[in-house]
Simulated assay, not measured.
Amino acid sequence: MKAKIALITGGYTGEAEVSFKSSAFVNSQLDHDKYDVYLITISKDAWFYTDKDGRQYPILRESFTLPLNGETISFDLAFIMVHGVPGEDGRLQSYFDLLDIPYTSCDALTSALTMNKGYTKAILSDIPELYLAKSVLLFESQRAEAISTVESNLSLPYFVKPNAGGSSIGMTKVKESAQLQEAIDKAFDAENTGKQVIVEEFVTGREFSEGIFRNAKGELVVLPATEVRTTREFFDFEAKYIPGLTEEITPADLTTEQQERAARILKEIYVRLNCKGMVRVDFFLENGTDKFYFIEINTIPGQTAQSFIPQQVRAFGMKEGDFYGELIESALLSAK
Protein backbone atom coordinates (compact mmCIF):
# COMPACT_ATOMS: atom_id res chain seq x y z
CA MET A 1 0.00 0.00 0.00
CA LYS A 2 1.30 3.45 -0.93
CA ALA A 3 2.22 5.86 1.86
CA LYS A 4 -0.18 8.78 2.17
CA ILE A 5 1.77 12.03 2.13
CA ALA A 6 0.29 15.38 3.16
CA LEU A 7 2.23 17.97 1.15
CA ILE A 8 1.58 21.12 3.13
CA THR A 9 1.71 24.58 1.56
CA GLY A 10 0.58 28.15 2.19
CA GLY A 11 1.13 29.71 5.59
CA TYR A 12 0.26 32.83 7.54
CA THR A 13 2.77 35.32 6.11
CA GLY A 14 3.78 36.94 2.84
CA GLU A 15 6.09 33.99 2.25
CA ALA A 16 3.02 31.89 1.38
CA GLU A 17 3.48 32.94 -2.25
CA VAL A 18 6.87 31.22 -2.28
CA SER A 19 5.44 28.20 -0.45
CA PHE A 20 2.87 27.64 -3.21
CA LYS A 21 5.64 27.61 -5.82
CA SER A 22 7.85 25.29 -3.75
CA SER A 23 5.08 22.78 -3.07
CA ALA A 24 4.00 22.76 -6.72
CA PHE A 25 7.53 21.82 -7.77
CA VAL A 26 7.89 19.15 -5.08
CA ASN A 27 4.53 17.70 -6.13
CA SER A 28 5.64 17.59 -9.76
CA GLN A 29 8.80 15.67 -8.85
CA LEU A 30 7.52 13.14 -6.30
CA ASP A 31 6.98 9.56 -7.42
CA HIS A 32 3.18 9.30 -7.47
CA ASP A 33 3.42 5.59 -8.23
CA LYS A 34 5.06 5.18 -4.81
CA TYR A 35 3.23 7.84 -2.78
CA ASP A 36 -0.35 9.09 -2.58
CA VAL A 37 0.24 12.83 -2.37
CA TYR A 38 -2.39 15.22 -1.07
CA LEU A 39 -1.70 18.94 -1.53
CA ILE A 40 -3.00 20.68 1.58
CA THR A 41 -3.16 24.44 1.95
CA ILE A 42 -3.13 26.08 5.36
CA SER A 43 -4.08 29.70 5.97
CA LYS A 44 -5.43 31.67 8.89
CA ASP A 45 -8.92 31.24 7.45
CA ALA A 46 -8.96 27.57 6.46
CA TRP A 47 -7.05 24.30 6.05
CA PHE A 48 -8.09 22.32 2.99
CA TYR A 49 -7.14 19.73 0.39
CA THR A 50 -7.43 20.69 -3.28
CA ASP A 51 -8.05 17.87 -5.75
CA LYS A 52 -6.90 17.80 -9.38
CA ASP A 53 -10.15 19.47 -10.48
CA GLY A 54 -9.71 22.38 -8.07
CA ARG A 55 -12.34 21.24 -5.58
CA GLN A 56 -11.54 22.00 -1.94
CA TYR A 57 -12.20 19.69 1.02
CA PRO A 58 -11.68 20.86 4.64
CA ILE A 59 -9.12 19.21 6.92
CA LEU A 60 -10.29 18.13 10.37
CA ARG A 61 -7.75 19.97 12.49
CA GLU A 62 -8.37 18.05 15.70
CA SER A 63 -7.00 14.91 14.02
CA PHE A 64 -5.40 16.18 10.79
CA THR A 65 -7.57 13.85 8.75
CA LEU A 66 -9.41 14.36 5.48
CA PRO A 67 -13.03 13.27 4.93
CA LEU A 68 -13.14 12.44 1.23
CA ASN A 69 -15.61 10.45 -0.88
CA GLY A 70 -17.17 8.68 2.06
CA GLU A 71 -13.95 7.76 3.85
CA THR A 72 -11.61 9.47 6.28
CA ILE A 73 -7.99 9.66 5.16
CA SER A 74 -5.22 9.56 7.74
CA PHE A 75 -1.71 10.55 6.70
CA ASP A 76 1.50 8.61 7.16
CA LEU A 77 3.70 11.70 6.87
CA ALA A 78 3.57 15.48 6.57
CA PHE A 79 5.93 16.96 3.97
CA ILE A 80 6.14 20.54 5.25
CA MET A 81 6.64 23.13 2.51
CA VAL A 82 5.46 26.18 4.45
CA HIS A 83 8.03 28.98 4.58
CA GLY A 84 7.76 31.29 7.57
CA VAL A 85 4.91 31.01 10.10
CA PRO A 86 3.65 28.42 11.06
CA GLY A 87 5.78 25.97 9.06
CA GLU A 88 9.26 27.12 9.92
CA ASP A 89 8.95 28.31 13.51
CA GLY A 90 7.99 25.05 15.21
CA ARG A 91 4.23 25.54 15.44
CA LEU A 92 3.27 22.94 12.84
CA GLN A 93 5.93 20.59 14.17
CA SER A 94 4.46 20.82 17.69
CA TYR A 95 1.00 20.15 16.29
CA PHE A 96 2.17 17.04 14.45
CA ASP A 97 4.10 15.86 17.51
CA LEU A 98 0.86 16.01 19.52
CA LEU A 99 -0.89 13.94 16.86
CA ASP A 100 2.06 11.53 16.49
CA ILE A 101 2.38 12.21 12.76
CA PRO A 102 5.97 12.18 11.40
CA TYR A 103 7.18 15.05 9.25
CA THR A 104 10.13 15.87 7.00
CA SER A 105 11.54 18.94 8.72
CA CYS A 106 13.52 19.72 11.88
CA ASP A 107 11.64 19.18 15.14
CA ALA A 108 9.70 21.86 17.01
CA LEU A 109 12.53 23.03 19.26
CA THR A 110 15.11 23.28 16.48
CA SER A 111 12.64 25.02 14.17
CA ALA A 112 11.74 27.59 16.81
CA LEU A 113 15.36 28.15 17.78
CA THR A 114 16.67 28.60 14.24
CA MET A 115 13.97 31.18 13.45
CA ASN A 116 15.71 33.31 16.08
CA LYS A 117 18.96 34.45 14.50
CA GLY A 118 20.48 35.74 17.74
CA TYR A 119 19.79 32.58 19.72
CA THR A 120 21.09 30.42 16.87
CA LYS A 121 24.39 32.30 16.83
CA ALA A 122 24.75 31.75 20.58
CA ILE A 123 24.45 27.98 20.13
CA LEU A 124 27.01 27.94 17.29
CA SER A 125 29.52 30.32 18.85
CA ASP A 126 32.28 27.81 19.67
CA ILE A 127 32.32 25.64 16.54
CA PRO A 128 35.89 25.27 15.24
CA GLU A 129 36.64 27.19 12.00
CA LEU A 130 33.29 29.02 12.20
CA TYR A 131 33.20 32.80 12.61
CA LEU A 132 30.24 34.99 13.58
CA ALA A 133 29.86 38.66 12.74
CA LYS A 134 29.83 40.89 15.82
CA SER A 135 26.22 41.73 16.62
CA VAL A 136 23.67 43.10 19.08
CA LEU A 137 20.18 41.74 19.70
CA LEU A 138 17.48 44.35 20.33
CA PHE A 139 14.12 43.70 21.98
CA GLU A 140 10.99 45.86 21.70
CA SER A 141 11.52 47.13 25.26
CA GLN A 142 14.94 48.47 24.16
CA ARG A 143 13.67 50.25 21.07
CA ALA A 144 14.09 53.75 22.48
CA GLU A 145 17.79 53.27 23.18
CA ALA A 146 18.49 51.10 20.11
CA ILE A 147 20.61 53.71 18.31
CA SER A 148 22.98 54.26 21.22
CA THR A 149 23.22 50.50 21.87
CA VAL A 150 24.23 49.79 18.29
CA GLU A 151 26.66 52.67 17.91
CA SER A 152 28.41 51.93 21.22
CA ASN A 153 28.96 48.26 20.35
CA LEU A 154 29.38 48.01 16.57
CA SER A 155 31.21 49.71 13.72
CA LEU A 156 29.70 50.78 10.39
CA PRO A 157 28.51 49.44 8.01
CA TYR A 158 25.72 47.38 9.60
CA PHE A 159 23.21 44.77 8.54
CA VAL A 160 19.89 45.44 10.27
CA LYS A 161 17.28 42.69 10.07
CA PRO A 162 14.37 41.15 11.95
CA ASN A 163 15.60 38.51 14.36
CA ALA A 164 12.96 36.13 13.03
CA GLY A 165 11.43 35.73 9.60
CA GLY A 166 12.86 34.86 6.21
CA SER A 167 13.24 35.82 2.55
CA SER A 168 15.31 38.85 3.66
CA ILE A 169 12.09 40.72 4.52
CA GLY A 170 12.74 43.87 6.56
CA MET A 171 16.51 43.87 5.99
CA THR A 172 18.65 46.96 5.36
CA LYS A 173 22.35 47.59 4.82
CA VAL A 174 23.27 50.74 6.74
CA LYS A 175 26.30 52.67 5.52
CA GLU A 176 25.96 55.81 7.65
CA SER A 177 24.48 56.66 11.04
CA ALA A 178 21.68 58.79 9.58
CA GLN A 179 20.14 55.64 8.01
CA LEU A 180 20.11 53.59 11.20
CA GLN A 181 16.82 54.70 12.79
CA GLU A 182 14.81 54.04 9.63
CA ALA A 183 16.44 50.63 9.25
CA ILE A 184 15.71 49.66 12.86
CA ASP A 185 12.08 50.77 12.57
CA LYS A 186 11.69 48.81 9.34
CA ALA A 187 13.02 45.65 10.98
CA PHE A 188 10.96 46.05 14.16
CA ASP A 189 7.78 46.69 12.18
CA ALA A 190 8.15 43.85 9.67
CA GLU A 191 5.12 41.60 9.85
CA ASN A 192 5.34 38.29 11.74
CA THR A 193 8.99 38.71 12.73
CA GLY A 194 8.74 38.69 16.51
CA LYS A 195 9.43 42.34 17.38
CA GLN A 196 13.13 41.64 17.79
CA VAL A 197 15.96 43.06 15.70
CA ILE A 198 19.52 41.86 15.19
CA VAL A 199 22.21 44.27 13.99
CA GLU A 200 25.48 42.85 12.70
CA GLU A 201 28.72 44.32 11.48
CA PHE A 202 28.97 43.87 7.74
CA VAL A 203 31.28 41.16 6.44
CA THR A 204 32.77 41.72 3.00
CA GLY A 205 33.28 38.56 1.03
CA ARG A 206 31.91 35.99 -1.37
CA GLU A 207 28.45 34.75 -0.43
CA PHE A 208 27.41 31.10 -0.59
CA SER A 209 24.44 28.90 0.17
CA GLU A 210 24.81 25.16 0.74
CA GLY A 211 22.40 22.36 1.55
CA ILE A 212 22.86 19.38 3.82
CA PHE A 213 20.48 16.51 4.53
CA ARG A 214 20.27 13.14 6.23
CA ASN A 215 19.47 10.34 3.79
CA ALA A 216 17.47 7.17 4.33
CA LYS A 217 20.65 5.35 5.41
CA GLY A 218 21.15 7.87 8.21
CA GLU A 219 24.16 9.47 6.52
CA LEU A 220 24.77 13.22 6.45
CA VAL A 221 25.16 14.38 2.86
CA VAL A 222 26.54 17.82 2.00
CA LEU A 223 25.43 19.12 -1.38
CA PRO A 224 27.58 21.27 -3.69
CA ALA A 225 27.60 24.94 -2.72
CA THR A 226 26.03 27.78 -4.72
CA GLU A 227 27.80 31.12 -4.99
CA VAL A 228 25.48 34.13 -5.01
CA ARG A 229 26.43 37.25 -6.94
CA THR A 230 23.87 40.05 -6.99
CA THR A 231 23.65 43.49 -8.56
CA ARG A 232 21.84 44.64 -5.41
CA GLU A 233 23.51 45.95 -2.25
CA PHE A 234 22.93 42.51 -0.75
CA PHE A 235 20.86 39.38 -1.35
CA ASP A 236 17.50 40.95 -0.44
CA PHE A 237 13.91 39.88 -1.24
CA GLU A 238 14.00 41.38 -4.74
CA ALA A 239 17.36 39.77 -5.50
CA LYS A 240 15.97 36.41 -4.40
CA TYR A 241 12.79 36.47 -6.42
CA ILE A 242 13.14 38.89 -9.36
CA PRO A 243 14.88 37.22 -12.34
CA GLY A 244 18.03 38.85 -13.63
CA LEU A 245 19.16 40.56 -10.41
CA THR A 246 21.30 37.68 -9.21
CA GLU A 247 23.81 35.28 -10.69
CA GLU A 248 23.90 31.87 -9.03
CA ILE A 249 26.82 29.56 -9.74
CA THR A 250 26.27 25.89 -8.90
CA PRO A 251 28.57 24.20 -8.15
CA ALA A 252 30.53 27.13 -6.75
CA ASP A 253 34.14 27.68 -7.69
CA LEU A 254 35.76 26.60 -4.42
CA THR A 255 39.08 24.93 -3.79
CA THR A 256 39.14 21.40 -2.43
CA GLU A 257 40.25 22.76 0.95
CA GLN A 258 37.36 25.26 1.02
CA GLN A 259 34.85 22.56 0.08
CA GLU A 260 36.13 20.21 2.77
CA ARG A 261 36.18 22.97 5.39
CA ALA A 262 32.63 24.02 4.52
CA ALA A 263 31.46 20.40 4.75
CA ARG A 264 33.03 19.98 8.20
CA ILE A 265 31.38 23.15 9.46
CA LEU A 266 27.98 22.35 7.95
CA LYS A 267 27.95 18.89 9.50
CA GLU A 268 28.82 20.35 12.90
CA ILE A 269 26.07 22.99 12.56
CA TYR A 270 23.55 20.29 11.59
CA VAL A 271 24.46 18.11 14.58
CA ARG A 272 24.79 20.99 17.05
CA LEU A 273 21.31 22.27 16.21
CA ASN A 274 19.84 18.73 16.12
CA CYS A 275 18.58 19.24 12.57
CA LYS A 276 16.51 16.74 10.62
CA GLY A 277 15.66 16.41 6.94
CA MET A 278 17.16 19.06 4.68
CA VAL A 279 18.49 22.45 5.76
CA ARG A 280 20.42 25.17 3.98
CA VAL A 281 23.23 27.24 5.48
CA ASP A 282 24.18 30.65 4.09
CA PHE A 283 27.71 31.91 4.69
CA PHE A 284 30.43 34.31 3.62
CA LEU A 285 34.07 33.61 2.85
CA GLU A 286 35.60 36.87 3.98
CA ASN A 287 37.80 38.74 1.54
CA GLY A 288 41.44 38.70 2.56
CA THR A 289 41.09 36.13 5.35
CA ASP A 290 39.02 33.34 3.75
CA LYS A 291 37.25 32.90 7.10
CA PHE A 292 33.88 31.11 7.05
CA TYR A 293 31.27 33.53 8.47
CA PHE A 294 27.84 32.11 9.31
CA ILE A 295 24.88 34.15 8.00
CA GLU A 296 21.84 32.02 8.82
CA ILE A 297 20.24 28.60 8.56
CA ASN A 298 17.01 27.85 6.71
CA THR A 299 15.09 24.77 7.85
CA ILE A 300 12.42 24.93 5.10
CA PRO A 301 14.48 26.06 2.09
CA GLY A 302 12.78 27.06 -1.15
CA GLN A 303 12.07 24.29 -3.63
CA THR A 304 11.22 25.91 -6.94
CA ALA A 305 13.10 24.56 -9.96
CA GLN A 306 15.44 27.57 -9.70
CA SER A 307 15.94 27.40 -5.93
CA PHE A 308 19.35 26.63 -4.43
CA ILE A 309 18.60 23.13 -3.14
CA PRO A 310 17.21 21.75 -6.44
CA GLN A 311 20.19 23.30 -8.25
CA GLN A 312 22.55 21.60 -5.82
CA VAL A 313 20.73 18.27 -6.00
CA ARG A 314 21.14 18.29 -9.78
CA ALA A 315 24.82 19.27 -9.48
CA PHE A 316 25.23 16.37 -7.05
CA GLY A 317 24.02 14.05 -9.81
CA MET A 318 20.70 13.24 -8.19
CA LYS A 319 17.14 13.65 -9.46
CA GLU A 320 14.92 15.93 -7.42
CA GLY A 321 12.26 13.25 -7.09
CA ASP A 322 14.78 10.80 -5.67
CA PHE A 323 15.99 13.48 -3.25
CA TYR A 324 12.48 14.17 -1.95
CA GLY A 325 11.93 10.42 -1.70
CA GLU A 326 15.03 10.17 0.51
CA LEU A 327 13.60 12.84 2.82
CA ILE A 328 10.30 10.95 3.07
CA GLU A 329 11.92 7.57 3.69
CA SER A 330 14.33 9.02 6.27
CA ALA A 331 11.47 10.65 8.18
CA LEU A 332 9.37 7.47 8.07
CA LEU A 333 12.27 5.34 9.28
CA SER A 334 13.13 7.70 12.13
CA ALA A 335 9.52 7.58 13.31
CA LYS A 336 9.53 3.78 13.75
Results as ranks from 00 to 15, higher is better:
Met1Cys: 03
Ala16Cys: 01
Val18Arg: 03
Ser22Trp: 00
Phe25Glu: 02
Phe25Leu: 01
Asn27Ile: 00
Tyr35His: 07
Tyr35Met: 05
Leu39Ile: 11
Ile40Val: 12
Thr41Gln: 04
Ile42Ser: 06
Asp45Lys: 14
Phe48Asn: 04
Thr50Ser: 15
Gln56Arg: 13
Ile59Phe: 01
Phe64Gln: 02
Asp76Pro: 06
Gly87Thr: 12
Ser105Asp: 02
Ser105Cys: 09
Cys106Phe: 00
Ala108Ile: 13
Leu109Ala: 14
Lys121Asp: 10
Lys121Ser: 12
Glu129His: 14
Tyr131Ala: 05
Lys134Leu: 02
Gln142Glu: 15
Glu145Met: 05
Glu145Ile: 10
Val150Phe: 13
Pro157Thr: 09
Gly166Ile: 15
Thr172Tyr: 05
Lys175His: 04
Glu176His: 11
Ser177Thr: 11
Ala178Tyr: 03
Glu182Gly: 12
Glu182Cys: 01
Asp185Lys: 09
Asp189Thr: 09
Asp189Lys: 14
Val203Lys: 01
Thr204Ala: 12
Asn215Lys: 01
Val222Phe: 02
Ala225Met: 11
Glu233Cys: 00
Ala239Tyr: 11
Glu247Cys: 02
Glu257Cys: 02
Gln259Asp: 13
Arg264Cys: 06
Lys267Glu: 08
Lys276Leu: 07
Ile297Leu: 15
Ile297Glu: 11
Asn298Asp: 11
Thr304Ser: 08
Ser307Val: 14
Val313Asn: 06
Gly317Asn: 06
Gly321Lys: 02
